[in-house]
Design a protein around this nucleic acid. Structure first.
Length: 340
DNA sequence: GATATTTGACCACT
DNA sequence: AGTGGTCAAATATC
């Protein structure tokens, strides 16, 4: 009990430190952006494309900070032996999602073998448990720099457009299990819904990863009602917390320190997003069909587990230590009870 | 020839 | 039983 408590405090301090660092970086970024915005619009793709400008460096720092935070939380999950394990147990056949697909030689008496010995692996796989999933709406599907390989396409019931399935190119060589699904938006076919499943474990530099890995923890400002809206993936916040607030913002509170809102609208309703990156070449090779849009402004909405979390670029809000501590306490107290 | 994509079949899950 | 996710042979592209 005591050791658990000490461990919790240590982790909490670590997390808070990372967030404070992110806050400081965001403040600097705000100053930079406000200067640039006064003269001209910022090319959104430039921010994330790797240009060694100060804005980009700061963005990387911010994202890296949050990325580390997520890692801390992840490690805490393991320490706390959280309930995710119980939920994951639904996948009963072949262990965890990192387990390479295999048929467990000898198979479990599955009578559905219709193929010859040489083809016995056909269709034999274990479906991944749903870990770390998030959905992005984008006008282009190349909003990350990872190399993807298409492995399937399926017509989905009641959907006009087929869904395409991609996995990380490095799966065979590095065992990276990240996958993504791409489907055209029903209402607006110029938009794509991209669902990422799992994080990349392939060898990508931290900087690149920080710029491209969507965050599980996202704290944004809702420009419409001018309130702080924080969204944390269910991988890190248990339903118990959501039950109490349904939205993390209710736990955090409203009106934390805010940064100037960028008045960036071209007359449409799309929102910008400061995350992700683009290399056009990669996916244009992988899936030229969907590379038709020339729009490089990266208008995106982010959805987490079906809940819309509309974000606006150039806006950053961060909670202070006490607020985050409160949130974290809620999180920890639940994890503590659920693990027993 | 190597690599990537397409597509029908198979299997897990609900 | 229906649907969605994955496999892998066939095919296309470089």
């Amino acid at each position: 009990m005591d050791s658990d408590s000490n461990n919790t405090k240590s982790v909490k301090r670590n997390v808070v430190d990372q967030l404070v660092e992110g806050y400081e970086s965001a403040t600097q970024l705000q100053l930079l952006l406000s200067r640039q915005q006064s003269s001209h619009h910022i090319d959104q793709t430039r921010i994330v494309s790797g240009d060694p400008d100060p804005v980009n460096k700061l963005m990387g720092k911010i994202l890296d900070s949050f990325h580390k935070t997520i890692s801390v939380l992840d490690s805490f999950d393991q320490v706390a032996n959280v309930s995710v394990v119980l939920e994951g147990s639904r996948n009963t056949s072949c262990g965890d999602d990192s387990t390479p697909v295999s048929c467990n030689g000898g198979d479990s008496g599955d009578s559905r073998k219709r193929l010859g010995v040489g083809k016995s692996k056909r269709g034999c796989y274990t479906r991944k448990k749903r870990s770390h999933t998030w959905t992005v709406e984008a006008r282009r599907i190349d909003e990350d720099i990872y190399a993807w390989r298409k492995y399937g396409q399926k017509q989905i019931l009641n959907s006009k457009f087929p869904r395409s399935y991609f996995r990380c190119t490095h799966k065979p060589t590095q065992g990276c299990n990240a996958t993504k699904q791409v489907q055209k938006h029903e209402q607006d076919p110029s938009l794509f819904q991209i669902t990422y499943i799992g994080h990349h474990t392939c060898n990508v530099s931290d900087e690149t990863q920080a710029k491209t890995e969507p965050l599980d923890l996202e704290i944004v400002l809702d420009s419409d009602n001018n309130k702080l809206a924080a969204t944390i993936s269910q991988d890190h916040v248990d339903p118990y917390i959501q039950e109490q607030g349904n939205d993390i913002s209710s736990l955090i509170g409203v009106g934390a320190s805010m940064v100037k809102e960028e008045d960036y609208n071209n007359g449409d309703q799309n929102n910008d997003y400061c995350e992700g990156s683009s290399t056009y070449s990669d996916l244009s090779l992988v899936w030229p069909d969907v590379m038709m849009s020339d729009d490089r402004q990266h208008h995106q909405n982010h959805f987490y587990h079906g809940e819309a979390s509309t974000t606006t670029s150039y806006q950053f809000s961060f909670i202070d230590n006490d607020q985050f501590s409160s949130l974290f306490d809620s999180y920890c107290s639940y994890e503590g009870t659920s693990a027993i």
